[in-house]
Computed example of a mutant assay.
Amino acid sequence: MQRQAVASTNIRSVGYDEEDEILEVEFHSGGVYHYVGVPASVYEGLLTARSKGRYFGDFIRLRYPYEKVR
């Protein structure tokens, strides 16, 4: 999955698989996670959010099942 770098103190890059609704998040700590069932609108919201970390915490982190992939 292609990820794009984002300006954030916690998140290094994000990618999205629209067909499977999987959001991939790479953190500056090195961890990469897949969040499952994330609608495209939430991904777009993350990309346009002023604070990526706050948006992630408020709308993604505890709302969607996830798995660590790296």
Rank of each mutant, 00 (worst) to 15 (best):
A40W: 03
S13F: 00
V25P: 05
E19A: 08
S13P: 01
G37F: 06
V25N: 06
G37T: 07
T48C: 05
G53Q: 15
V25C: 07
Y66F: 07
T9N: 14
R54Q: 10
D58K: 12
S8P: 12
R54C: 04
Y64C: 11
E44A: 13
G57L: 05
E26P: 01
R12G: 00
T48Q: 12
H34C: 08
F59I: 04
R63H: 14
R63W: 08
A5G: 15
Q2C: 13
S41F: 06
V38A: 11
N10Y: 04
I60Q: 03
E26G: 03
G15Q: 15
T9Y: 07
Y55K: 10
V6M: 02
T48R: 14
R12Y: 04
R54K: 08
R54G: 05
Y66T: 09
H28G: 00
Y33K: 09
L23M: 10
S29T: 05
V14Q: 01
F59N: 12
L23E: 14
R3A: 12
I22M: 00
H34F: 04
D17E: 10
E26R: 06
G31T: 07
R54T: 09
L47T: 13
G31S: 12
I60T: 04
V32E: 06
Y33A: 09
G45Y: 04
K52E: 07
L46S: 04
G53A: 09
L46Q: 03
V36T: 08
I60D: 04
M1L: 14
R63A: 11
L23Y: 13
V32N: 03
Y16S: 07
Y16I: 13
V69D: 02
D58G: 03
N10W: 03
Y16L: 11
V6T: 05
K68Q: 11
A49G: 14
G30C: 01
R70C: 06
S41P: 13
V14H: 01
L46M: 15
H28Y: 01
V69F: 01
D58Y: 08
H34E: 12
R61I: 04
D17W: 00
A49W: 03
G53P: 04
I22A: 00
G15K: 07
R70M: 03
A7W: 07
R50V: 14
E24H: 14
V69T: 11
V32P: 04
P65I: 14
K52C: 05
A7V: 15
A49D: 05
E21K: 15
A5V: 14
A49C: 06
